[in-house]
Design a protein around this nucleic acid. Sequence first.
DNA 1: AATCCGGGGAG
DNA 2: CTCCCAGGATT
Length: 371
Amino acid sequence: MNRKKPKIRSLPDPAFASILLAWFDHSATEMPWRGQRDPYRVWLSEVMLQQTRIAAAESYYRRFLERFPTLQSLAEASLDEVLKLWEGLGYYARARNLHRVAQLIVNEHNGQFPASAEALQTLPGIGRYTAAAIASIAFGEAVAVLDGNVVRVLTRLMDIPDEVSQPAVMNRLWAVASELLSPKRPGDYNQALMDLGRMICTPRRPACQHCPVREFCLAAANGTMEQRPVKKPKAPLPQVRAAAAVIRDQAGRLLLVQRPEHGLLGGLWMLPGGHCLPGESYVECLQRSLMELVGIEIRAGKEMAATSQTLAHFRLRLRAFACELVAGTPTGETRWAWVSSTELSRYSLGKADREILERLEQWQPRLFEEC
DNA sequence: AATCCGGGGAG
DNA sequence: CTCCCAGGATT
């Protein structure tokens, strides 16, 4: 008979790391941040990669590093410029923390990065994963990482049937990750395990035929690969309505306001407006929001553009209305600016606002003619 | 333990 | 359309 008995090598086993590293040495993917150990660059890449695919981060990494080649240059920059470079990448608290940490290290650590995972994790925006990634890659510290890829690989290797968001399960996975780590080449090992999860041990239809560590995999033997990891079902996304005002001054410039530092798209700019309260009309929302934001009374006219967007926790419907300034002039704590067409590209905006502005220019090019 | 925080690519 | 991505902070 040519039927093979599934012979599983049980973990931990020192052979696991050596087999994985041999595969990595043979088939590692080229990435802009690989092949060097500068803590600043490793840190930047790891922060950019938080909840972000490699393909999405690569161009941002190159641009960011070109503008801020050193920790010092980043520390000296304005937050506005950092956010502008981050525009489109999402999770903007990462950019704010990046800027803050750069200043912190330059001013209080003599420009030297903390060199251990434990010390790194005290910095804002650096959690357990990122601290371990930086420490292992830049400093060679023997600490394991646990990201979404590694969770998937480990729950399959061990065929873990438990729901993975539970703290007890995550603690076990961190422990397993540490047991399997190669103390000789921790940085390469960590990246190898993530490469494996990304390229071979994929969420759907994993390429077990090409897996270098299949002989260790219980899920592959049991045929449960696609059922691992077990995740909690997601709640349906609520719908959120939002309104934006298109207001021009006599020169034809648009009024933009800056969002508060914390919260959604914090620190980015937007067309003035906000979320509609329950039962509130778009026009009522605009009148209330403009008064709250910059203390002006407006009259809302016809709808100029609209867009929809799905965020992590809600579906957004944004409608923009041509508005007239009835009374008052912008004031208050919210930063605001009259922005001409040529200046628009210097402001950082979320996707929905950027889309609204594109449609305004497309349908009403004369709107900006006199600028 | 639950929620918030973006945007995009793959299937 | 759904899922998920080199997660972290806050409550």
